[in-house]
Nucleic acid binder design. Structure first.
Length: 260
DNA sequence: AGGACGCCCTGTTCGC
DNA sequence: TGCGAACAGGGCGTCC
C-alpha cells in the first residue's frame, strides 16, 4: 500500500526522528529483507555513521549518511517506519533497527517481506538503475502530456508504471482516475487534451491532499473514493454502487456512472 | 510493446 | 466451529 503519500510521510518521520544522531548499532532482525547485501556488510557500513538527509523518489526512500553509501528503503505493500526505545507497536514485524546512542531506534517494519532495504552508491545512480521515471509530484504539465501521448496502453497501467512516473500505485491511480472522471480501462490514445489536463490536475490534487493528511485514508475529504473501495461501497459523489474490474492484473475500483 | 498471468510473501477475510 | 482457499498488491519475469 505505501505509495507516494505514504512514503513522503515516512520520509518526514525519518527526517524528524532519525537524522543527526550517531548509529550505535544496526540490528538485523530478519535478514531476508536485505536486498542483495550480506548482513555483516550492511551493519559494518552503517555502524557509527550519522544520517543527514532523507530523500524520496517515487515510492523509494533514501537516507544519506555523508557521501556514500546511501540507505535505500522500499516498503512493498506492508512496510512502514517506527521509532521507539523499548516495547512498541507491531514489534514482531521489526526487520531492521538503527539503534542510536540514546537507545531509541529508527525501525523498518514489514509484514509480508515484499519490501527491501539495501545500500546504494548514490541516489541518482539508484534511480537510474531502478529505471524510475520522474517523481509524480515533479512532472510538469507538458512532460505529462508528452508522456501520455507517447504511451499506447491503458491509462491506469501507465499511471502505475514506475518507469514512466514514479510514486503512484493501485489505490491512488484509482483515486486519480475517479477525480478525473476517467474509466480505468481507457487508453491514453483515447484521451483528449482536455482529459489529459484534467488527469494532470487530479494527479496533483489527489497526491498533495493525501500528503497533507499524512496518507491517513480516514482524514481524506469526504468525496474521495479510497475508503469506499469495497463490494458495499457507494460513490461518495453520486451515491451509486462502485464497481471492481481487473486492469493490468490489479483490482480497479471505480464509479461506473461518473467515469467513462 | 502492451497486457495477461504467475510468483513471491503472509495476515486477514470469506466460504464451505 | 474450523480449516483451507482466496485475497490484498508492488515488483518482477515469462509468454503471446
Amino acid at each position: 500500500m505505501p505509495e507516494l503519500p505514504d512514503v513522503e510521510t515516512f520520509r518526514r518521520y525519518a527526517r524528524r526522528r532519525g537524522l543527526h544522531k550517531r548509529i550505535k548499532d544496526v540490528e538485523i532482525v530478519d535478514e531476508r529483507i536485505l536486498d542483495d547485501i550480506p548482513p555483516r556488510t550492511f551493519q559494518a557500513k552503517l555502524r557509527g555513521r550519522t544520517l543527514d538527509s532523507a530523500v524520496r523518489h517515487g515510492k523509494y526512500l533514501f537516507l544519506t549518511a555523508g557521501d556514500t553509501p546511501v540507505l535505500l528503503m522500499h516498503f512493498g505493500m506492508t512496510g512502514k517506519l517506527a521509532y521507539a526505545k523499548g516495547e512498541h507497536e507491531d514489534e514482531k514485524y521489526d526487520k531492521i533497527r538503527l539503534r542510536f546512542e540514546d537507545e531509541h531506534a529508527l525501525i523498518y517494519q514489514c509484514r509480508r517481506l515484499l519490501g527491501k532495504v539495501g545500500l546504494v552508491g548514490a541516489i541518482d545512480e539508484a534511480v537510474e538503475a531502478l529505471e524510475l521515471g520522474p517523481d509524480a509530484l515533479a512532472v510538469s504539465a507538458k512532460a505529462f502530456k508528452d508522456l501520455l501521448s507517447s504511451s499506447p496502453g491503458m491509462v491506469k497501467s501507465v499511471l502505475m508504471d514506475q518507469k514512466r512516473i514514479a510514486g503512484i500505485g493501485n489505490i491512488y491511480s484509482d483515486e486519480i482516475l475517479f477525480h478525473a472522471g476517467l474509466h480505468p480501462r481507457k487508453t491514453c490514445k483515447e484521451l483528449s487534451d482536455n482529459e489529459i489536463g484534467n488527469l494532470y490536475r487530479a494527479l496533483n490534487e489527489v497526491l498533495k491532499t493525501a500528503v497533507d493528511v499524512k496518507a491517513d485514508p480516514s482524514s481524506l475529504p469526504n468525496d474521495y473514493l479510497l475508503t469506499h473501495r469495497s463490494k458495499e461501497g457507494k460513490c461518495p459523489r453520486c451515491g451509486g454502487s462502485v464497481r471492481a474490474i481487473t486492469v493490468g492484473g490489479r483490482r480497479a475500483w471505480y464509479c461506473p456512472s461518473r467515469q467513462s
